[in-house]
């Protein structure tokens, strides 16, 4: 039974498979059934099945005090990316030529920040800025073709490109991009096994759909500056993913005021990590 009013939707927190009560986890979006061990994740107003994996610790003796931090791992559809970039660049070059031929007078006015905004927001469609307006000097700023081709080839040569989105709670949200970018750059090998939830684990608070949107920005932030700053290209590029994102718990080891990633080989301040998984006393 669920109660629906003008406010929040409330329903019994039950395993959708065996009906057992699920543990109360505060802000966590993932629940593990103690009876049948199935995992459920918040998906809008309902719970949906989710798979949670745990990254295997690299060779060597496992340190005693391990903290597992959840990340969504999204695999970029590389062939589609290459094809989309190529189409967009052709279109932009064509437009650039047309503008040059029209010999338009450069507009020297300061751009009004509000009219310059290319807002693409949920529920509101606004055409992106770029080709459709007159820019002082060169009509459209495009990245050097050679550099763009080299970058795409480098990504393609890896075979698989994964973007890592931190799903744990954090007092400051910017860490989601900075840690995500760090992990994505490191390209850790992904050897996983189903998670049993044992040990200390930070609660995941980001849903899959949100993770895919964040993945897009993390992915762009890994581009070289000359490509990442090209708004005309970036705003038109809709990143496609090869599969549904995976929720993976990665091992970290506390060292004083920091935690070290055992698979990524980097450190982040311990204060960037929020609540850990435990049934909250307040409920």
């Amino acid at each position: 039974m669920s109660m629906k009013t003008d406010g929040l939707t409330v329903q019994r927190l039950q395993c959708q498979h065996c009906g057992a009560e699920l543990p109360v986890m505060g802000r966590s979006i993932v629940f593990r059934c103690a009876a049948c061990r199935r995992l459920w994740a918040a998906s809008g107003e309902h719970l949906g099945p989710v798979r949670v994996d745990r990254a295997v610790i690299p060779s060597g003796p496992a340190p005693g005090d391990i903290l597992h931090l959840p990340f969504w791992v999204a695999e970029i559809d590389l062939p589609r990316l290459e094809s989309d970039v190529s189409k967009i660049m052709n279109s932009l070059r064509h437009t650039q030529v047309r503008l040059a031929e029209a010999a338009l007078v450069p507009d020297d006015r300061e751009p009004d920040p509000l009219t310059e905004l290319g807002l693409n927001l949920i529920g509101i469609e606004t055409p992106p800025s770029g080709a459709q307006r007159i820019v002082p000097g060169a009509a459209i700023a495009l990245p050097p073709s050679a550099e763009l081709d080299f970058f795409l080839r480098t990504i393609a040569d890896q075979g698989i490109f994964r973007v890592f989105v931190p799903a744990f709670d954090s007092p400051g949200e910017q860490v989601r991009l900075s840690v995500g970018r760090l992990m994505t750059h490191r390209r850790p090998e992904l050897r996983t096994a189903p998670s049993d939830g044992a040990g200390r684990t930070a609660v995941p608070v980001i849903q899959a759909a949100e993770a895919l949107i964040l993945a897009r920005y993390i992915f762009f932030s890994t581009f070289p500056a000359s490509i990442g700053s090209c708004a005309a290209l970036i705003d038109r590029l809709e990143v496609q993913y090869a599969a549904e994102p995976l929720l993976v718990e990665f091992p970290f080891v506390p060292h004083g005021g920091e935690v070290e990633s055992l698979v990524g080989g980097f450190h982040i301040p311990a204060r960037t990590i929020g609540a850990l998984a435990e049934e909250t006393a307040s409920s």
Binding site: T9, V10, V24, E45, H46
Partner: peptide, 17 residues
């Protein structure tokens, strides 16, 4: 996202539609 009723002890899932 989840809370326990302090009266009947039921576990509840809360969502903002």
């Amino acid at each position: 996202r989840s809370v326990r009723c302090q009266y009947c002890n039921a576990a509840l899932y809360v969502a903002a539609p």
